[in-house]
């Protein structure tokens, strides 16, 4: 029973991390129609920026996390404005641009920090005890921040002018522009929002898991899996799917071990596509 509860806590914590990643990924796809292959790269970059701030500059960890968010969001903004914007209607071209950026980013990190994992530790350690159940404090802190960020994203999207405009652009770009919504301002904003979230996740999670140039690939794969499961472009679907993926992963690693859980999840998602090609909460999206 304790084991069951403990895995549940880990699962929910993982789910919150995946949700931040998947929400960003699906936001970019829903609004711009771009499949962002550099999403894992921004996660990794967030981790390295936070690490460099703490280790090289001696900055307190919370400030380092903010710096990571700022850097990844700024880079996302510039990348969208200068490169993606030119080809935003060509799905394959924008996909290749993000792939190219990812390769450049990971090589740059390799050059600066080397191939080995960094000694990057979460500043808070210890565990809370609820009766027989231990909950690692670091996981709880990350969970809290992730949930806050998800709430914040929700407020931005559903309670502000910008958020409403972004959702309108996702629904019908031409009509949204004819209503005076400016893609030149809003597309980079959406991209920056999403990459900033990936950077935040990286800064929070890499000190707990690990930080090396190799961390980006699995993150990208998990983001793909989550958004396919939830339905490409669906925000609610991405959040729901993220928690499903997190919880399945946590329980299968406790009860089966190894990568069986991941394998089951992958195959389940493939089977889902047979019966519901648009994912759990997806709808027929743009002609992508």
């Amino acid at each position: 029973m304790e084991q069951f509860l403990q895995a549940g806590i880990i699962g929910i914590s993982l789910g919150a991390q995946y949700a931040l990643l998947a929400l960003g990924f699906t936001l970019i796809f829903g609004i711009l129609g771009v499949v962002n292959f550099s999403h894992g790269g921004f996660y990794m970059l967030g981790g390295y920026v936070a690490y460099a701030c703490v280790d090289r500059l001696g900055v307190p960890y919370p400030v380092a996390v903010l710096a990571a968010v700022g850097t990844t969001a700024a880079l996302g903004w510039v990348f969208e404005l200068l490169l993606i914007e030119r080809l935003v209607d060509d799905h394959l071209a924008t996909l290749m641009l993000t792939l190219g950026l990812y390769l450049v980013m990971s090589t740059a990190m390799l050059e600066v920090f080397g191939p080995l994992a960094m000694d990057f530790r979460f500043p808070i350690t210890g565990a809370l005890r609820f009766g027989p159940v231990y909950a690692p404090l670091e996981n709880l802190v990350v969970l809290g921040i992730c949930l806050t960020a998800i709430m914040g994203l929700w407020l931005v999207l559903f309670r502000t002018d910008i958020g409403r405009a972004l959702r309108a652009l996702a629904d019908d770009r031409a009509v949204a522009m004819a209503q005076g919504l400016r893609p030149k301002l809003l597309f980079p904003a959406a991209f920056a929002l999403a990459t900033g979230l990936a950077g935040l996740t990286g800064a929070l999670v890499t000190p707990i898991l690990s930080l090396s140039p190799g961390v980006a690939d699995p993150v990208l794969a998990t983001s793909f899996l989550t958004v396919i499961l939830g339905g490409l472009g669906s925000l609610g679907g991405a959040a729901l799917a993220a928690f499903i993926v997190g919880i399945v992963e946590a329980y299968s690693s406790v009860y089966f071990g190894g990568s069986i859980g991941a394998l089951i999840l992958f195959v389940l998602v493939l089977l889902l596509l047979v019966f519901r090609p648009t994912g759990l909460l997806g709808r027929e999206v743009r002609g992508a």
Binding site: L92, L95, I228, A288
Partner: peptide, 12 residues
């Protein structure tokens, strides 16, 4: 699946 899904699924 449409083009975009195809990319993601082949990756998976």
């Amino acid at each position: 699946l449409r083009g975009t899904y195809f990319v993601l699924v082949t990756f998976v």
